[in-house]
Computed example of a mutant assay.
Amino acid sequence: MAIKDELQNYYEAEINHGRLYPNLDTLVEKGLVEKGTLDKRTNSYTITDRGSRELEARREWESQYVENG
């Protein structure tokens, strides 16, 4: 699972399936991520245009409070 692996590497901790999937479902419900299927057992997740806009807005907000360099 690519998402789980990426999160575990980032946080240097094991990610629990019981927390991961409900959080992904919340992102889907909010229209930030789109859920698809790769096969009968594997889902795929893709960021939506709205999700990209929200991330960009967050980056802009953060840049007001974090100095570069």
Rank of each mutant, 00 (worst) to 15 (best):
E12I: 09
V28L: 04
V33F: 06
E67F: 00
A57Q: 14
A57T: 10
L32I: 03
K30I: 01
A57G: 11
N43R: 06
E56D: 11
E29S: 08
G69N: 13
D39W: 07
K4W: 00
Y65C: 01
V66C: 02
V28I: 07
G51D: 03
I15S: 02
Y45H: 02
V33W: 06
G18Q: 13
S44I: 14
G18R: 12
L27H: 02
K4T: 06
S44K: 15
N23F: 11
G51W: 00
V33P: 04
G31V: 02
G18S: 10
R19A: 09
L38I: 11
P22Y: 03
D49E: 13
S63D: 14
N23P: 00
L7D: 00
D25Y: 06
Y65M: 02
D25W: 04
G36W: 09
I15A: 02
D39T: 05
S52A: 13
L7E: 00
P22T: 01
G36P: 01
K35C: 05
R50N: 10
K4S: 04
I15G: 02
R19I: 07
R41H: 11
D25Q: 12
K30H: 08
S44L: 12
N9S: 14
D5G: 08
G51M: 04
G31W: 04
Q64S: 10
I47F: 12
G69H: 08
R53C: 05
N43Q: 06
R19C: 05
K35V: 00
K35I: 05
Y11V: 08
G31S: 04
I15P: 03
D25T: 06
E34P: 00
L7I: 02
R59G: 10
P22V: 00
R59W: 12
M1L: 06
Q64Y: 15
N68G: 12
R53M: 11
S52Y: 14
R53K: 15
W61S: 10
V28H: 00
T46E: 15
V33L: 11
D39N: 15
T46N: 14
I15K: 02
E62F: 15
Y10A: 10
Y45E: 04
E56V: 12
Y11M: 13
K40Q: 12
V28W: 01
G18I: 09
E56C: 08
G31N: 04
Y45C: 04
V66G: 03
G51V: 02
V33G: 03
T37I: 06
E6G: 09
T42N: 15
Y65R: 14
N68S: 14
I47G: 05
G51T: 01
L55Y: 12
R41T: 10
E14Q: 13
E54K: 14
L32E: 04
I15M: 01
V66W: 01
V33D: 06
W61F: 15
M1E: 08
Y65I: 05
G18L: 10
G31F: 09
Y10G: 03
E56A: 09
R41F: 08
E6I: 15
G51C: 00
Y11R: 10
G51R: 01
K4L: 04
I47Q: 07
R19Q: 11
D25G: 03
P22H: 05
T46G: 08
Q8I: 03
A13F: 03
T26E: 14
T42V: 13
R53T: 08
I3M: 06
I3L: 13
E54I: 07
I47H: 05
Y11K: 10
E67H: 02
L55R: 12
H17Q: 11
N43A: 13
E56G: 06
Y65W: 15
G69V: 09
Y11D: 02
L20Y: 01
R50L: 11
